[in-house]
């Protein structure tokens, strides 16, 4: 089976004045369709940088990145924007919804940038239905609870049928119970065939993934496939 993400010797060096900071020092990683992978590590380990590169928000200094078999590390800005739009769905710790827009409008946003006009509303409604928010379509995001806002963000991430959902500390702002609900939602999406990559530093959250990648100092130091489902 072809991997969704294939990383070969990815390096990322930031220049802070005259000092070079090595955020990633050669990362090799493959993520296959339908997988749920948690990337763990202390802050400064490079896990966020890795996620930004996988999400095409950042470019590696060295190395190759194949997204569904396509070389993407040398594409231009517009091509990357297009790939982000079609192939990647982001879920952030702070939800990043447009505060005055309704749940529907927020979910429509990626479709808008995809140039979809016909059936846009329906697709956004379906996505919200899928995350269990069919009854909250017209609520503005600042009228929703944290858990509901994150569900809207997840609906937004999956509305364009991406190849990959990237979630950066998706439960970081939520209480334990809501966190469990959100993780159960990710598991459900995974069962439906979605590929999910989580970045987290909480073992409780990482446990939901079947595969855990641990990073330190810009390298992968451990990979386990021992994740088990605490609910089922």
């Amino acid at each position: 089976m072809e991997a969704v993400v294939q990383l070969f010797g990815i390096e990322r060096v930031y220049r802070m004045g005259s000092v070079a900071v090595h955020a990633l020092r050669g990362v090799d990683l493959a993520i296959y369709p339908g997988e749920m992978v948690a990337i763990m590590g202390p802050s400064g380990s490079g896990k966020s940088t890795l996620m930004h590169i996988m999400g095409l928000l950042d470019r590696p200094t060295a190395g190759r990145y194949l997204l569904e078999g396509q070389e993407v590390h040398r594409l231009g800005d517009s091509a990357l924007a297009r790939l982000r739009n079609r192939k990647i769905g982001f879920v952030f710790q702070a939800y990043n919804l447009l505060p005055r827009a309704t749940a529907l409008e927020n979910v429509e946003l990626p479709l808008m940038y995809a140039g979809v006009v016909r059936g846009r509303r329906q697709r956004a409604m379906d996505a919200l239905e899928r995350v269990g928010l069919g009854h909250r379509l017209r609520h503005r995001s600042n009228q929703l609870s944290g858990g509901e806002q994150q569900r809207v963000a997840i609906a937004r991430a999956l509305v364009n049928n991406p190849s990959l959902i990237l979630a950066d500390e998706p439960t970081g702002n939520l209480d334990t119970k809501t966190s469990q609900e959100i993780m159960a939602l990710f598991r459900q999406l995974q069962r439906e065939g979605m590929t999910v990559v989580l970045v987290t530093h909480e073992p409780d959250i990482a446990r939901w993934a079947e595969r855990v990648v641990v990073m330190r100092d810009g390298r992968i130091i451990e990979e386990r496939r021992d994740g088990h489902d605490p609910v089922g």
């Binding site: 297009r82 982001f90 940038y113």
Partner: peptide, 16 residues
């Protein structure tokens, strides 16, 4: 700024 970042993340190009 955050809204702009989000729009870019979900696929807005510079010209959008």
């Amino acid at each position: 700024t955050r809204e702009i970042g989000l729009r870019k993340a979900v696929g807005a190009r510079r010209r959008d």
